[in-house]
Nucleic acid binder design. Sequence first.
DNA 1: TGTAATTTTGCAACAACGTTGCAAATAAAT
DNA 2: ATTTATTTGCAACGTTGTTGCAAAATTACA
Lengths: 144, 144
Amino acid sequence: MGTTKQITEKIGILLRDSKLSVTETRVKILELFMKSDGALEHSDFEKLAGKSFDRVTVYRTLQTFLEKGIIHKIPTTDTSVRYAVCKSECTEHHHHDHHVHFKCETCGNTTCLDETDVPNIQLPKGYAMHNVEVVVNGVCKSCK
Amino acid sequence: MGTTKQITEKIGILLRDSKLSVTETRVKILELFMKSDGALEHSDFEKLAGKSFDRVTVYRTLQTFLEKGIIHKIPTTDTSVRYAVCKSECTEHHHHDHHVHFKCETCGNTTCLDETDVPNIQLPKGYAMHNVEVVVNGVCKSCK
DNA sequence: TGTAATTTTGCAACAACGTTGCAAATAAAT
DNA sequence: ATTTATTTGCAACGTTGTTGCAAAATTACA
Ligand SMILES: [Mn+2]
Ligand SMILES: [Mn+2]
Ligand SMILES: [Zn+2]
Ligand SMILES: [Zn+2]
């Protein structure tokens, strides 16, 4: 994962590549993503970072990152929205997160299984497939 | 699908089988589920049924149906929660909705593809799988 | 069928979440 | 360094979801 300094530098490059100004909030939020091993939801940022930035700013920042292909959403069955950082293949114009997500019923963490590809699905005739989301529920490695 | 009278009768049986009182609200909500071809979310009931029942009652009714295995949730990437009626195999103690869900990007409808089984997933070592949720995004038959 | 016991509903009040407009602060461009 | 463009924080507001409680409806039972 690298030192804090390396991470900060990496984040600066990532933001500039996405044509985004490098601001304290954006850097801090990306740091939290990179230091966390699971997906994060909106309320996590207030918990993890204290009240160091405004709720509104967090909403706007996540929205911007989403549009730029820096983070992606993960489906849930509750009213929360979870986000995780994308791999380098994602761009402003196209997301490529073809991996499986795992939700641990014990610790509650949601993680990207980057090495686990989503399988082929055979749809009924007449349906056009654009992308497939897979979320596996169970018990994760750490909780077993 | 049957006549309205047949549906009402079916709903009465379903409720009694689940050891639930047969109330106007419950019958009405199940009717809306059965007459809709897609999944419904909370706000749909207020739209479809006018203000004929209270918001709180809808929340409580959906919660009850969920616990009794009458409906199941479908994952989303926004703050909504979608529900659809279960097939007969689901019980109070165990859900068996091993089918794929489809979200149409054109009409916005989410449907259960009851005939499309969720595929096998090979998880990394150390993970225990309990169940798999699959949501396919694309364009549905009617919108094509 | 009538009455008592149980369950469900609707209301009020509240808390949490999410959005918008706008002025002040910050970052980028020159 | 100054100007220009972007981002942030605040206030205000609307929406969504929760809880306690009394009234109403349903069920159980005589
Ligand atoms: Mn992911
Ligand atoms: Mn379904
Ligand atoms: Zn875990
Ligand atoms: Zn459609």
